[in-house]
Simulated scan of single mutants.
Amino acid sequence: MPDVHPADVQKVRARQRELGIPESFEWVAETTPSLRAAAEESGLVVQEHPLMVLDPGASAAHVDGVSGNTSAGQHQPLAGVSEIVGVGTLPAARRRGLARAVTAALVADARSRGAATVFLSAGDDDVARVYARLGFRRVGTAPIAEPAE
């Protein structure tokens, strides 16, 4: 892949502003390594997240005995692939296995809909360890670049 330059990022950011959408970039660091420097030079802040995929054949362990409206998430299936996104638990309900149960349920639903590949970006290495216990393994880094708040 050709190198990405700050001017390239600026063009995309201008178009994002024209369209009224967030100025945000997400990519796989290992496939486009030059994007990080270009994003930072154009004024964006880059955060890195573990990119993880569920091992083939794994279904993610089922967790019984969880209920309530304190944890949520979703998956986005397309052509045999599904990305798990937005898994979160209210702070008062953390450390009870709720996010793990939600993730297991999302994996089961993705598999039932024909997803052979299920992947996600973990918030950080601590969160990645939770997903690893469900059968996910790190395959790369998923940077996200956004304007400073």
Rank of each mutant, 00 (worst) to 15 (best):
106 L>G: 09
6 P>D: 07
103 T>R: 13
118 V>S: 14
120 L>E: 09
139 V>L: 03
102 V>S: 13
120 L>Y: 14
99 A>G: 15
136 F>L: 07
28 V>T: 12
36 R>G: 03
120 L>S: 10
124 D>M: 11
136 F>M: 08
47 Q>D: 09
115 A>E: 07
120 L>Q: 08
108 A>L: 05
101 A>Y: 09
113 R>W: 07
67 S>H: 09
63 V>W: 07
71 S>M: 04
94 R>D: 08
62 H>K: 06
139 V>I: 11
129 R>A: 11
25 F>M: 12
105 A>K: 12
20 G>V: 05
42 S>K: 05
7 A>L: 04
77 P>G: 05
66 V>N: 05
92 A>P: 03
148 A>V: 01
50 P>H: 01
82 S>K: 13
138 R>V: 00
54 L>I: 12
47 Q>M: 11
147 P>F: 00
29 A>H: 06
68 G>A: 07
5 H>C: 09
131 Y>K: 03
78 L>C: 04
3 D>E: 12
100 R>D: 08
93 A>P: 09
142 A>C: 06
145 A>N: 01
87 V>R: 04
10 Q>Y: 00
36 R>D: 05
12 V>G: 10
116 A>T: 11
97 G>D: 08
146 E>G: 00
98 L>T: 06
118 V>L: 13
114 G>R: 03
104 A>M: 10
47 Q>C: 06
136 F>A: 04
107 V>Y: 14
33 P>Y: 04
44 L>D: 00
110 A>R: 14
134 L>A: 04
144 I>R: 13
93 A>Y: 14
140 G>C: 03
59 S>I: 12
74 Q>T: 14
73 G>K: 12
102 V>P: 10
1 M>P: 14
102 V>E: 13
90 L>F: 13
94 R>S: 12
110 A>D: 14
9 V>D: 12
99 A>P: 13
139 V>Q: 05
49 H>R: 13
7 A>P: 00
19 L>M: 10
74 Q>P: 10
76 Q>V: 15
133 R>K: 05
54 L>R: 02
39 A>P: 02
80 G>M: 10
116 A>W: 07
98 L>V: 07
117 T>P: 01
11 K>L: 11
18 E>F: 01
25 F>W: 15
137 R>L: 01
92 A>Q: 07
110 A>P: 15
122 A>M: 10
125 D>I: 01
120 L>A: 09
114 G>A: 09
15 R>Q: 10
4 V>R: 04
77 P>S: 03
28 V>R: 09
83 E>D: 09
28 V>K: 05
137 R>P: 04
34 S>V: 11
49 H>M: 11
83 E>F: 15
140 G>Q: 03
139 V>S: 03
50 P>E: 11
111 R>T: 15
85 V>F: 04
135 G>T: 07
15 R>M: 13
117 T>A: 03
149 E>W: 01
1 M>F: 08
